[in-house]
């Protein structure tokens, strides 16, 4: 398929974080991925290396693939060679996401996020039996 050009007058992106990208121009293939251990903890102590990806199956389990379908012959007629956009305003892009102004062949993105809430007092109380 022939790719169209893009004309964009103005773009503002405030934040690009955690394995994300902001691309101007064409690209053939992008495979961003992010693994996140998000620890929210009561108390001021944070031990380094306390949390490991290997301890949680969310970081190793396979993603389900869509069943393959029959291929369809497609023909695209671009009667206008450009896509025209006036202005874009984006606050943030995060966790293996992507902004692209231009054409993209293949995009395969993965993100795995595990959250923790560690509350000191409640955890101790949970073990006592009334």
């Amino acid at each position: 398929m022939n790719k169209r050009l893009v004309t964009l007058d103005n773009i503002k992106v405030s934040d690009v974080v955690y394995g994300s990208s902001f691309v101007i121009g064409d690209s053939w293939r992008a495979t961003p991925f992010a693994r996140v251990l998000a620890v929210q903890k009561e108390g001021a102590w944070f031990e380094e290396g306390r949390y490991k990806y290997e301890d949680y199956p969310i970081f190793t389990r396979q993603f389900k693939r869509l069943p393959s379908t029959d291929t369809v012959e497609d023909i695209h007629y671009h009667h206008n060679p450009t896509i025209n956009v006036e202005s874009v305003r984006i606050n943030g892009v995060s966790t293996s996401s992507m902004i692209q102004v231009g054409s993209l062949g293949i995009l395969e993105a993965e993100s795995r996020v595990k959250h923790f809430r560690i509350i000191q007092d409640e955890q101790e109380e949970d073990f006592s039996i009334d």
Binding site: R4, I58, T95, S96, S97, Q100, G102, G105, I106, E110
Partner: peptide, 24 residues
């Protein structure tokens, strides 16, 4: 915001596959 394996694309594309696991 665009988060957790999402995409905002101005342009043409052939194939997109976006996967995300989220545990809380």
């Amino acid at each position: 915001g665009i988060t957790s394996s999402s995409v905002f694309l101005i342009g043409d594309n052939e194939q997109i596959r976006l996967n995300s696991y989220f545990d809380t």
